[in-house]
Lab assay of single mutants.
Amino acid sequence: DLSALRVEEVQNVINAMQKILECPICLELIKEPVSTKCDHIFCKFCMLKLLNQKKGPSQCPLCKNDITKRSLQESTRFSQLVEELLKIICAFQLDTGLEYANSYNFAKKENNSPEHLKDEVSIIQSMGYRNRAKRLLQSEPENPSLQETSLSVQLSNLGTVRTLRTKQRIQPQRTSVYIELGSDSSEDTVNKATYCSVGDQELLQITPQGTRDEISLDSAKKAACEFSETDVTNTEHHQPSNNDLNTTEKRAAERHPEKYQGSSVSNLHVEPCGTNTHASSLQHENSSLLLTKDRMNVEKAEF
């Protein structure tokens, strides 16, 4: 173990290094160091905050020279020094078990990766560091076993998940096959086929009936047209017969005018059967003409 005197000496050296690497504005270890034209180094955030307070150039807090945003430059070497100082402080805390008085939040800088452990060898070769390295080497064999167990647990979990997924996939297939086998029997399929065939026959029977009705309507229309044509021909046949009657009536009127007047009046009210309204109107006109002729003949006879 380190003596108290040596611990104090190391602590004083760390404090001196820390004062050199402090920012003059925030009085902390410089984060993202930036250098000016006057070779003074500050935190990048502190300098941008200072420049944004005034429009135009501002003055350096140490030498009062003008500073602009374009004049600022990043210093990589200074950032490396800060990183190495942080590593020294971490090693000091691990070796002594004491917390550094002016320690900052170094938890963000710590890294437990194997590459980081290899890099620590180049920091300080001390008894405390050696003991700590031995402890780490002793704890390393235990870690692979834990990793193997965790991997086995994960693989077993994956296997159970896969088996569950396969079961879920197989179950719908089985149910679907069961439904297909038990849903419709052979008799049901035959009945469905016969039902479809009967429906098709009914459709075939319905369509000819409609065509037959249309044919019957067409035949009825044709018969009505033929009947009207026969009526017209009958009226045409009746007209010459009426003319013959008129000639006979004229002759009778010349011989017996008194008797014919009474008979002509009675004939006005008689309509021949089986004739249309057109034929009756023609008869009325003929009878009126005959009456006028008879009157003329009677007057001539009187004179």
Rank of each mutant, 00 (worst) to 15 (best):
Leu151Met: 09
Gly262Lys: 02
Ser156Trp: 02
Leu282Lys: 06
Asn131Ser: 07
Glu299His: 15
Glu148Pro: 11
Pro114Ala: 11
Cys225Phe: 15
Leu289Phe: 12
Asp200Val: 06
Ser156Ala: 08
Arg6Ile: 04
Met296Ile: 15
Leu27Trp: 04
Leu291Gln: 06
Asn191Gly: 04
Arg165Ala: 06
Lys250Met: 03
Ser156Gly: 10
Glu28Phe: 01
Thr230Leu: 06
Arg130Gly: 05
Cys38Tyr: 00
Ser3Ile: 05
Leu86Met: 09
Gly128Phe: 04
Ser150Glu: 13
Leu86Asp: 06
Thr160His: 09
Asn276Ser: 09
Leu98Thr: 12
Ile25Trp: 00
Leu5His: 13
Val82Lys: 07
Cys43Asp: 01
Pro57Leu: 07
Phe45Tyr: 09
Pro33Asp: 01
Thr230Ile: 02
Pro272Leu: 15
Pro33Lys: 00
Lys87Met: 01
His284Ile: 09
Leu27Asn: 03
Thr149Pro: 11
Gln18Ala: 03
Asp184Thr: 03
Glu22Ala: 01
Ala16Val: 02
Val82Ala: 02
Gly262Gln: 04
Glu229Val: 11
Gln171Ser: 08
Val82Arg: 02
Ser139Phe: 10
Lys31Arg: 12
Gln18Val: 08
Asn52Arg: 03
Ala223Ile: 13
Cys63Tyr: 00
Pro33Ala: 05
Leu137Val: 11
Tyr195Cys: 10
Ser3Phe: 12
Arg162Asn: 02
Arg130Pro: 15
Val7Thr: 08
Tyr260Trp: 05
Arg132Asp: 02
Ser219Arg: 14
Glu28Tyr: 01
Gln261Asp: 03
Gly274Thr: 09
Val298Lys: 13
Leu21Thr: 06
Ile206Ser: 15
Ser150Gly: 14
Leu85Val: 08
Gln201Tyr: 07
Thr235Ile: 11
Glu84Asn: 05
Ser3Asn: 12
Ile123His: 15
Glu99Val: 08
Arg77Lys: 08
Cys225Val: 05
Arg162Asp: 15
Thr166Ser: 11
Thr166Asp: 12
Met17Ala: 01
Ala4Phe: 10
Lys259Phe: 03
Cys225Leu: 13
Asn12Thr: 04
Phe106Lys: 07
Asp218Asn: 12
Gln201Asn: 15
Asn143Pro: 14
Leu155Ile: 09
Lys69Arg: 04
Phe42Leu: 02
Gln147Phe: 04
Leu164Pro: 10
His269Ser: 06
Lys118Leu: 12
Lys118Gln: 05
Asp218Pro: 13
Ser152Phe: 04
Ser281Ile: 03
Glu84Ser: 11
Cys43Trp: 00
Ala220Cys: 12
Thr163Ser: 12
Ser152Tyr: 07
Gly56Ile: 04
Pro141Glu: 06
Glu83Leu: 03
Asp213Val: 04
Cys273Phe: 03
Ser228Trp: 05
Ile30Trp: 09
Glu32Pro: 00
Pro141Gly: 13
Arg295Lys: 15
Glu142Val: 08
Met17Ser: 00
Cys90Gln: 14
Met17Cys: 01
Tyr260Gln: 07
Asp188Ile: 07
Glu74Leu: 03
Ser75Ile: 15
Ser139Glu: 13
Arg77Leu: 15
Gln125Asp: 13
Val161Gly: 13
Leu146Lys: 06
Ala4Gln: 08
Gln80Phe: 05
Thr247Ile: 05
Ser58Pro: 02
Cys38Lys: 01
Ser113Leu: 09
Thr235Pro: 08
Ala107Lys: 12
Tyr100Ser: 07
Glu258Leu: 11
Phe78Asp: 14
Leu2Lys: 12
Ser156Asp: 12
Gln154Arg: 07
Asn191Met: 09
Ile25Val: 03
Arg162Ile: 00
Ala220Ser: 02
Lys259Ala: 06
Pro144Gly: 11
Gln93Trp: 01
Lys55Ile: 06
Thr36Gln: 01
Gln73Arg: 06
Asn234Leu: 02
Ile25Pro: 00
Glu84Tyr: 01
Leu27Cys: 01
Arg251Thr: 11
Arg165Asn: 07
Thr247Asn: 05
Leu98Ser: 12
Arg135Asp: 07
Ser156Gln: 12
Ser75Ala: 14
Glu142Asp: 11
Asn15Phe: 15
Glu148Ala: 08
Leu137Gly: 05
Asp200Leu: 04
Glu258Lys: 12
Lys55Gly: 07
Glu8Asn: 07
His40Phe: 00
Leu48Ala: 06
Leu72Arg: 01
Thr275Val: 04
Gln73Ala: 05
Cys225Thr: 02
Leu51Glu: 03
Arg132Ser: 11
Thr277Asn: 03
Glu32Phe: 03
Leu217Phe: 12
Asp119Glu: 02
Lys37Asp: 14
Leu51Ser: 01
Arg174Lys: 14
Cys46Pro: 01
Pro57Ser: 11
Gly199Thr: 13
Glu120Thr: 09
Lys222Val: 09
Ser263Arg: 02
Ser280Leu: 14
Glu148Gln: 07
Ser216Phe: 04
Phe106Tyr: 12
Leu50Ile: 08
His278Tyr: 06
Glu32Tyr: 04
Lys192Thr: 13
Leu289Cys: 12
Asp66Glu: 11
Pro144Thr: 08
Ala16Arg: 06
Thr207His: 12
Glu302Gln: 15
Gln138Ile: 04
Gln261Ser: 13
Gln205Arg: 14
Met47Ile: 06
Thr68Pro: 05
Arg212Leu: 15
Ala301Thr: 15
Ser266Gln: 03
Glu110Lys: 06
Leu291Trp: 03
Gln261Glu: 04
Ala133Glu: 00
Pro240Ile: 04
Val153Ile: 07
Asn246Tyr: 12
Lys118Arg: 06
Arg70Trp: 07
Ser183Arg: 14
Thr248Ile: 03
Lys44Asp: 02
Asn143Ile: 06
Leu203Gln: 11
Asn234His: 02
Pro144Val: 11
Glu32Ser: 07
Asp231Tyr: 01
Leu164Val: 12
Glu249Asn: 09
His256Leu: 10
Gln147Thr: 08
Tyr260Ala: 09
Leu62Thr: 01
Phe303Ser: 14
Arg6His: 10
Gly274Arg: 03
Pro114Leu: 07
Asp188Cys: 06
His40Gly: 01
Asp66Gln: 11
Ser150Pro: 01
Gln53Phe: 07
Asn105Tyr: 10
Gln93Asn: 07
Ser156Tyr: 02
Asn157Ala: 12
Lys37Tyr: 08
Lys250Phe: 06
Thr207Arg: 08
Ala301Val: 14
